[in-house]
């Protein structure tokens, strides 16, 4: 359907260098993610994990100083945030903002139709859409009240994260970047979120998990694990790297003990 096949390059980041308010946060970062893969990017606080997520999603006040990002072969950095979203890039926010007065479901419907228009598909009507959302909400164990509330308005931390995954499941992105989706979740909520993400693993989709702890990876098993520190990927490996990190701490990587 999407014309994307397992193994096609989805995201190719080369030498990405980013300043935030005059401070260098990313410093020559390289990363390649292919269709069908789940990548985990781990790193200590302040390593630049969230900056990477936000830059990829097109946050305007982050300054790209050097490097390139190709998304399905296209120059991603040349696109405004909304165009990236319409082309199938989804960011699950670490701190989803509350937007009182803007209906949660309205936003989702408008987002879905924006994506469909971009793909040359017809817009969904209200009934179709509602049926779709109800279906997905069951999966995320969300109750009906989510339909009538403002975007994230008054949601608990766990509800916000579930709402992000709900949006992801409705929008069916090609590349999903989930920024610390596990933070602030209790174990039950974590399982629900992980289950939601796992159900979205597909051969024509890539998922990047950004996380501080390896706990999430017990539930969503990644194909590759990267360690981000000092603004670049210091080490990459498989699932075992995450476990080793858990045991030895990030200093082990930073001190060069793990230099690949």
């Amino acid at each position: 359907m999407s014309g994307i096949h397992k193994g096609d390059p989805i995201l190719e980041v080369r030498g990405l260098t980013v300043d935030v308010q005059g401070r260098r946060i990313l410093d020559g970062l390289d990363l390649t993610v292919r269709a069908g893969e789940v990548h985990a990017i781990m790193g200590p606080n302040g390593a630049g994990k969230s900056t990477l997520s936000q830059v990829l999603a097109g946050r305007p006040d982050y300054e790209v100083k050097a490097g390139s990002v190709r998304y399905r072969g296209e120059d991603l950095l040349a696109l405004p945030a909304e165009e990236r979203a319409r082309r199938g890039l989804f960011l699950g926010f670490q701190y989803p903002v509350e937007i009182p007065g803007v209906n949660n479901v309205y936003l989702l419907k408008a987002a879905l139709n924006a994506r469909r228009r971009q793909r040359g598909e017809s817009e969904v009507d209200a009934f179709e859409f509602l049926a779709l959302v109800r279906d997905k909400m069951k999966l995320m164990q969300m109750d009906e009240s989510f339909l009538s509330r403002g975007v994230n308005e008054g949601f608990s931390g766990g509800e916000k994260k579930r709402n992000e995954i709900l949006q992801m499941s409705v929008l069916e992105p090609t590349l999903a970047i989930l920024d610390e989706t596990d933070s602030g979740l209790d174990i039950d909520a974590l399982k629900v979120v992980a289950q939601g993400v796992n159900s979205l693993r597909r051969d024509d989709r890539a998922i990047v998990l950004v996380t501080h702890y390896q706990r999430l990876l017990d539930y969503i098993v990644p194909d590759q694990v990267h360690v981000l520190a000092g603004g670049r990927i210091l080490k990459s490996g498989d699932r075992s790297l995450a476990l080793e990190l858990e045991r030895r701490g990030y200093d082990w990587v930073r001190e060069g003990g793990a230099a690949a």
Binding site: D61, A81, E82, R84, A85, I99, V151
Partner: peptide
């Protein structure tokens, strides 16, 4: 700006996003 970015990142165009936030502001 954070609300605006959230809407943009969901594929809403900038003009609509601004109008939507303005409307929501008065909605209260």
């Amino acid at each position: 700006p954070q609300m605006l970015f959230y809407l943009l990142s969901r594929g809403i165009d900038a003009e609509t996003a601004r109008a939507l936030l303005t409307y929501a502001f008065l909605g209260e």
